[in-house]
Each structure stands twice: as structure tokens, then as C-alpha cells.
Design a protein around this nucleic acid. Structure first.
Lengths: 389, 389
DNA sequence: CCAATAGATAGTAAAACTGTCTAACTATTG
DNA sequence: CAATAGTTAGACAGTTTTACTATCTATTGG
């Protein structure tokens, strides 16, 4: 920003240089928001004078951040305005999703927000070090798409576990090798790019923010094939906790007077074990929890669904008392298998809370979408902060 | 700020006017932080040139925000620097605490952060409308201290209930008349000053932030004479929820398979009813819950304390799984009555969590202190934003 | 002990510098 | 011909640099 004062001061100060930087930042911000921009549009957004708008766009072009795309095709009186565009190849955001047993998924988005590459590979985590596996797939994917890996300026990783940013360790993860590897340090060293690691449910929560109905914030109750968890975004960004372990509802004991290691937690109460138990009770079976729920929906096993929905509603009630979110989203493989039918059952069991309960609005892989959204948002911020030093 | 662009744009733009505003803002910010400032100190903080520093301070003085306090008394070579001070009387922050049955407490802090007035009055809320009672005491208190009530630029109110900012209503409150009155609208209309209403436990949480050990954020488990609740500040400010009902642990059912109206909630499990029950079981009695706990501590009734601490530890465990705060503070009249003894018992019962458990570090009335801190912080922000339009 | 002096600090004045804005102008298009 | 896109030249506003004055302490020499 080129402020005069100490860089940690929350209030900047400076001279004309600062003014130029501020206006360039504003222009770049609007360019990133809109993708393309004519000088006239920039003036409408910023209020800058004509010559200033011209100069600012010129400097953004010289810095390699903007490129001219030709002239507007709008049918209008007068000459056609020159169209500036974000230089999509200026920098890239990469997202990695780790899953057991599915392996590694990588996706790359350019500065303009277009998906430029993606691939998934099954990996035996007991055979290959975690960081090597990620780096290998990332490099191969980038190379195949003709992307210079040195231009990757933000890399975000989703892992099925609690990531403690302070110690750079992954707790509670199901993936072999995850607790040992220092994911951020290892990848940053190899790639020279800032790395951020997220819990997978938190990443999925970000994806749900795409739903306008959840724009005020949400709590996502994740009912996954393996585990359950909650993702919390109350409008001011994700709540991750001091050690990345916020939202770990799976570890909450169901009965506070029974807290021994064999006593039930919410993982047992609403997760895969509960579905197996309830399924047996009600004569609904299947190869895994999602299949049981899907089967119950298909066959109209209302007693089973009601029993399970009641438990889920109890969890939602607890989450609502503690977080009071504007909406509660049901996500994860089990919720998906249950579909609208399960949501309806839960709504009925949730009483007054029912109005706040929504199904997931994300098609496809919520975790992968969310972590890519996080990476892309981070990339834009970094470009805005760093490009015009 | 006098930016060119639309005022809702997150990125400002502008010309020389903006620069001047930015530098004045920076100066005012540092002045508010430090209380007093010489030109040389301002230059060190902002990096501004000598003439600019002079001009900025001149303008702050002309605007009535700063006053000269004479010359520095530092023994040094050369002339003594002129000392500027915040004009303490420029604006005031007022805080109101409502309590049943204690009535109303009012406190006023000036722009420099000094407490200028405070008073408490018992009020029969069934006889006087809530807003009238607040306004009366506030006006009388201000007048007694010689404070122009028109200069009160931020008023914050703490109420024992969940305040929904959107509908301007107070839910779950124990105070007669609270659910009916539109507190914010009523006081704003009478006083022409922005009013913010908080839950009392949230206010107390802010007071705990004064403790350096809790600087990274905290969850306050409030064990009050009347009710229990949790205040959550994870470092990015209070979490209040969509309808102001976050942290209402008192409404969480203890046993998720028993959610009828007569089944126990955490209010019954760790609040006053639990203490009465456990007290009877263990032969500890008293006129109210705080007295029972105080008596138990005094007489060394370890069995009672252990049983109660176990329940509290269970609540802390749930809160930790969901919020993962860096520290857990025990507050409220019951926690105070239990003192270090109770905290030690809870620590022992909490297992690995014990390290994060702390007693309240606030002497005196945490709610009143917290709401005054909130009002004062808000005042500074408003002055910074509005004074140099 | 006292006075003269050097050196550092606080603050101001004038001119240079850097940026944006206004106004006038050219070119393009329906 | 009128409206729009864009440039150019000079005005304008703000900060900075440089030079200067005034004030105060500490040192030094008589």
C-alpha cells in the first residue's frame, strides 16, 4: 500500500503516492469483481475523472494485471469503449481435497475465476507420503493444462480432520500419515506459495454460502459416510476455533452423565453407527449408511426415517441454542441419500426450528467446491494487497 | 471519509480531499489510542512530515476534537513540545445495565476513557415502563455530573435476555415489560443517540477480554444466580447469532432423547435448580444457589463440589467441542461464590481440558464493565468515522 | 560560580513534487 | 448533428523537502 506509517497500524497515512495506490487498488478491486471493465464503467464505480481512469487502467495493464480485450460491441452513439479484462493468467488459485479412501482431488482456477484444470487420483496413503502425493498430482495437473506452477499464488487444502494452524498439524484425521506430516510447511517449501489448510466440513460450509438463502450465515450439519461434523459461518467468516477443532459435534457426548470412552457421542448417535443400529431395529439394511438411508427413502420406511430425523433434530436444536444461525443446512453423503424426504422428516421433528432447516444447495462435491472458493477468494485478496506494492 | 465512489464500496477512491481525510483519521486514531500526543510522537506513528503533522493537529483542534494541554515537561535539549490531548468532553459513551431484581445501573465514560458518572437505582419494573426508567436515571446521572446529555454519542444496554436486533425485541428476559418495549427505538427517539442492546452474558464476556490470558478469545460459562448462559468471543468479536440467542446453553436439553417441556435442560443441570438438588443430596443448604456453593466451599463439602464440578465440566466439554476456544472462563455469582476451589474441582473433572479453564479475572460487576467497554469502543469508532466527514 | 557557546529539538515558511480534476478539444458512430 | 470515448493542458489540492528561527541543555573556560 505504500503507507507512511508502521505497516501494522490499522489506520494508514501518507502522501500522493498513497492516493495513487488507493485508486489503483479500487480499480483492481472492481476489475476483479466484474471480470471486464470499460473506462466509463470504472468511472461510474469509483467516481474518478476521465484522465485518472485512463491512467489507472494504463498502469494496471503495464503491471500485467489487466489486458485490453478490444472494443465494446454495444450498439450506441459514439465510439466504442475499450474493454479491459483481468489478465486471467496473472495468477492461479489451486485447491486440494484429501479423502480416504478416494485419494486426492486437485482443481485450479485462474484469476478471472475460470476453472482451468482438475483431476482426481486414488492414492494409497500408506505407500506415498501425503505431501509428495499432493505435490505430484498438482504439478502434473498444472503441466497438463499448460499452467506455470510458479504462478500459483494461493493453495488451499481440505483435509478430513481438525487442522491446527499454530502447530501445522492435522488432528482426528482418518488418513494414514496425516498426523505426522507438516502439510503447510512441506508444501510451502516445495512450491513457494502460501498454503492454507482447512477442515473438509468447513470447506463444504463455504460452498453452501453460494446459496442466497444462506447469505446471512449458516450452520452446516455434515452427515458424512464416515463421520459427522458441523461447519459454522455466521456471516463473519468461518469459525474454526483455536486449534481448528470447532464444530466437532461428533465428539460431544450424548449423555453428559456418561462420558466414558465407550459411552455414545453424537458420532454414534447420528452418524453411521446410529444408522446401522436404527436400520436393524426397523428392518432396513444396506452395504453402508448412505445406502441404508437411500433404501429407507425408496421403500418409504417412515418409522426408521422418523427415528433418525428425531435424533438429527436434537442435534440441530443444540446447535441452534449455541450458535443461533439464520439457517441450518443438512449436508454430507447421508443427507444427500435422504434427500428432500429426510429434510422434511427433520423439519417435522424440529418444531419451531423447522423453518430454518434447508437441504444442501450444492450440486457435486461440496468440499472440493468450497475449498476452491476459499482459494480463489484468498488469491484475489493477495493480488489486491501485493500487486501494487 | 469523503470518497469519490459509492459509499458502500469496500475499496475507497478519491483525490486530495481523501488524502487529507485519511491523514486526519490516522492522527485522530493515534490520539484516541494514546490520550495525548505531541507533534513529534504523531510523526513517529504516522511518518508524516513536520508541516503536515502541524496542520493535521491544528485541524483536529479547530474541529474541537483535540485541545492543547501546555508543553511537555520532559527534561531535554531544545524547546518543549506542545502536548495535544483528546478533548474528553467532545462526546460521551453511556452504558446501562438492567437487572432483576437489582434495577438499573448507568455509567458514563468520556472520550478520553475516564469514568465520569455512575449510579444504580432499584426499580419496580412492574410500575415504571422500562424505557422511561432507563431514560430517567440516565438523564439524572448525566445532569448530576454536569454532562450535556446531547453529547452522549453511544449508548449500550445490557439486558438479561436474548436481544434480537432485527425486530428490536428482547426474548427470554426475566424483567417484566421487557418483551413488549422496543428498547432501541424508544431510547433513540428520546435521546437522538445510537443505541445498541446486548445480552448481559455477552457483555460480561467483553469484560473478560481485559484479561491478557484471554486475549486470543474465550468462551465464558456464566453461572448466574438466576440463569446460565455462555458468551462467545473467538477473537473476531462477540458471536451473538442471527436473533441474539447464541450461547443460550441453558436451553439445551441434557438428554437428547428427552426433549419434552419438563425434561431437564442445562439450566436445570448446572443452574440454580441443580445446586439446590445436589445440595439436598449432600446436605448443603442455603438461601440461594450462590450461598449453597459458598457454604460448600467454606465447609469443605467436597462430594457436593465434585458432583457439581463434574456437570460443569461436561458443559465445558460440549462448548469446547463446538467452539474450541483458547480458554474457558467461569463467571457469574455462582462461579464467584465457588472461587478458586470450584475452579480447581472443575479443572480436575475436565481432564485434558483443565488447562484451558480459568476463573473470572474481573473484579466487580462484569456485566456493567463489559457493556461500558462496548459503549466506549463504539464511541471511538463513531467519532473516528463521523467527526471528519 | 557564571557566562558564553555548541548542539539538539520544536516549529514555521517557501518552494518543489505528486497526484487528481476541470475544461477544452478531437475522433467516432448512429 | 448530437452523443460518446478518449486525450491534452493547465488549475488545484495536498504533502514533502529544504532552509530557517527559536528554545533549551550541557559543556567549557574564565
Amino acid at each position: 500500500m505504500r503507507t507512511n506509517g508502521p505497516p501494522d497500524s490499522p489506520v494508514p497515512s501518507g502522501s500522493s503516492h498513497l492516493l495513487r495506490t488507493i485508486n489503483e487498488r479500487a480499480a483492481l478491486y472492481h476489475l476483479l469483481e466484474n471480470g471486464t471493465l470499460t473506462r466509463v464503467e470504472l468511472r461510474k464505480l469509483t467516481g474518478l475523472a476521465k484522465p485518472t481512469a485512463s491512467q489507472v487502467m494504463l498502469r494496471l495493464s503495464e503491471a500485467g494485471l489487466a489486458v485490453t480485450l478490444g472494443r465494446s460491441t454495444a450498439k450506441q452513439v459514439g465510439p466504442r469503449a475499450e474493454v479491459y479484462s483481468v489478465n486471467a493468467d496473472y495468477a492461479f488459485a489451486a485447491a486440494v481435497t484429501l479423502r480416504e479412501p478416494d485419494g486426492v482431488t486437485v482443481a485450479v482456477r485462474d484469476l478471472k475465476g475460470r476453472e482451468r484444470a482438475s483431476s482426481t487420483r486414488r492414492i494409497d496413503f500408506t505407500a506415498v507420503p501425503l505431501d509428495r502425493a499432493v505435490l505430484d498430482l498438482l504439478e502434473r495437473t498444472a503441466a497438463d493444462a499448460g499452467i506455470d506452477k510458479g504462478r500459483i499464488a494461493a493453495l488451499h487444502v481440505a483435509v478430513p480432520g481438525a487442522y491446527d494452524a499454530e502447530t501445522d498439524t492435522i488432528g482426528y484425521a482418518d488418513i494414514p500419515g496425516a498426523p505426522e506430516v507438516r502439510m503447510r510447511a512441506a508444501i510451502e517449501a516445495a512450491l513457494d506459495c502460501p498454503v492454507t489448510v482447512h477442515n473438509d466440513v468447513n470447506a463444504a460450509t463455504v460452498a453452501e454460502r453460494r446459496n442466497p438463502a444462506a447469505s446471512g450465515g449458516l450452520v452446516l450439519l455434515w452427515l458424512g459416510r464416515e463421520g459427522v461434523g458441523a461447519g459454522i459461518d455466521l456471516g463473519q467468516g468461518l469459525i474454526v476455533g483455536a486449534r481448528g477443532a470447532a464444530g466437532e459435534i461428533g465428539y460431544v457426548p450424548v449423555f453428559p452423565d456418561r462420558t466414558g470412552p465407550d459411552d455414545p457421542t453424537y458420532q454414534d448417535w447420528i452418524g453411521a453407527p446410529a444408522i446401522a443400529d436404527l436400520g436393524r431395529e426397523h428392518g432396513v439394511e444396506g452395504p453402508d449408511a448412505a445406502a441404508v438411508v437411500a433404501g429407507a427413502v425408496e421403500r418409504g420406511a417412515d418409522a426408521f426415517l422418523e427415528a433418525y430425523a428425531k435424533r438429527v433434530a436434537g442435534a440441530l436444536h443444540m446447535l441452534t441454542c449455541l450458535f443461533d444461525p439464520p439457517c441450518l443446512v443438512l449436508g454430507g453423503e447421508i443427507a444427500r441419500a435422504g434427500g428432500e424426504t429426510l429434510v422434511d422428516h427433520v423439519r417435522r421433528q424440529a418444531g419451531a426450528l423447522g423453518d430454518r432447516v434447508l437441504p444442501s444447495a450444492v450440486y457435486g462435491d461440496a468440499v472440493a467446491i468450497g475449498v476452491l472458493d476459499l482459494a480463489y477468494a484468498d488469491l484475489k485478496e493477495r493480488v489486491l494487497d501485493a500487486a501494487l506494492a
